[in-house]
């Protein structure tokens, strides 16, 4: 498939708006890594507990103080969203208290929590409380059918609990995402998992993330996807997206999407997920890490920490640093030097950069442009 002249022109205008957004870098969302602690020990975790000093975790007062400082210092006119990640957020016994306190500010009443769902399934009364404290969405991780999920996440019975948590989330009216990490041992199950989820959970989003060699997952792991397996994932998404997208205006439908694995090339962007993807780390997405360090998404290498809210004013860091996030020239090495897609992807997702700044893979390059 090739783009029409109209499509090419629209991509150019989109790119100009993206460059303007990078220049302006308005604060539009906060990613708060609430903790590195977790009740599971998944094989693929991108932000594992064993790599950090768990005692350095922010206190509830420090977290609330950070949000209050942001609301006071930043232009909040475009702010829209708080993402809470981990670790497992619900292992923080003070999580609800923190959400209660920060949601006193009207800017912080559109909050999502990404969870494995175990604690929610064990304590379903939490669903009633979360709604009071500005939580609007829940993402539940389900990484295959029962045996595969339980082996990957190393918890017998985990699938049943995560599945139940997702079902209850929909039942309680939360915008619910089923998040699936696609790997070499579950990709053949993904169509069945999609049908099961759509039929019995009815989530708003069925998201697939391609597995990354970060955190506990190694390059040479038997779980890593081959280029042909990446194509298999993309083909599944393209087929389901093409079948369903005309119904996506109806909020009761289940959308499919590829997460932020990377740019797919102009031929495919916008045809496998309901948006045109671009890495927004440090552009409009401020990250507060578990220990108060300032960066962006929690799966990005801690090499890319830009500041520390315990010793610095958050807005000063946001305004005066983050050069590596906003000027991508340093990324243009190797295959990127001659790649025709560079002008649109700017080197892809920052979580795909190793601490030495080299790129570990590119979906577009590794699959020969999905040829």
């Amino acid at each position: 498939m090739s783009l029409t002249a109209q499509d090419e022109e629209l991509f150019e205008r989109w790119r100009e708006r993206m460059e303007a957004l990078i220049r302006e870098h308005p604060l539009q969302l906060i990613s708060w890594e609430s903790t590195r602690r977790c009740n599971l020990r998944c094989l693929h975790c991108g932000s594992p507990a064993e790599d950090v000093d768990l005692d350095a975790e922010l206190t509830a007062d420090e977290v609330v103080g950070a949000f209050e400082q942001i609301a006071a210092d930043f232009d909040m006119s475009q702010f829209r969203h708080v993402n809470v990640t981990g670790g497992e957020p619900f292992v923080r016994r003070d999580l609800l208290d923190i959400l209660r306190r920060i949601s006193r500010n009207p800017h912080f009443r559109n909050t999502d929590i990404q969870t494995n769902g175990i604690i929610l399934a064990d304590h379903p009364e939490l669903f009633d409380e979360l709604d009071r404290y500005g939580v609007t969405g829940l993402g539940i991780s389900i990484d295959g059918l029962e045996a595969t999920h339980d082996a990957f996440r190393r918890i017998p019975g985990g699938f049943a609990k995560s599945f139940e948590a997702a079902r209850l989330s929909v039942e309680h009216g939360y915008v619910t995402t089923v998040s699936v990490v696609a790997h070499a041992k579950n990709i053949d199950e993904i169509p069945a998992l999609f049908e099961l989820s759509r039929r019995e959970i009815r989530p708003r989003v069925f998201r697939i993330m391609t597995i990354d060699p970060i955190g506990r997952m190694d390059f040479d792991s038997e779980y890593m996807l081959s280029p042909d397996q990446v194509r298999q994932v993309i083909d599944f998404l393209k087929t389901e997206y093409g079948r369903g997208c005309a119904t996506y205006a109806d909020q009761s439908t289940t959308m499919v999407e590829l997460g932020c694995g990377g740019w797919l090339g102009r031929d495919l962007e916008g045809l496998v997920r309901p948006f045109i993807w671009h890495c927004i780390a440090g552009i409009n997405n401020l990250g507060i890490l578990y220990d108060g360090k300032l960066a962006s998404c929690s799966n990005i290498s801690r090499e890319f920490i830009e500041g520390d809210l315990r010793t610095e004013r958050i807005k000063d860091v946001w305004q005066n640093r983050y050069e590596r996030y906003r000027d991508s020239d340093w990324k243009r090495t190797g295959p990127c030097v001659t790649c025709g897609e560079w002008a649109y992807c700017y080197g892809g997702p920052l979580h795909g950069r190793l601490p030495d700044h080299t790129d570990f893979r590119c979906l577009w390059n590794d699959t020969d442009g999905f040829a």
């Binding site: 629209l10 993206m18 005309a246 119904t247 205006a249 909020q251 045809l271 309901p274 552009i283």
Partner: peptide, 29 residues
């Protein structure tokens, strides 16, 4: 409302990284 047409609407959305009004506009008839 083909996927290709929905993409053209996405590409014209003011905020390039926007993603109910969006869904109505991009995916509606």
């Amino acid at each position: 409302t083909s996927a290709e047409e929905c993409r053209r609407r996405m590409l014209q959305w003011p905020n390039p990284v926007e993603y109910t009004e969006y869904f109505r506009t991009v995916f509606g008839k």
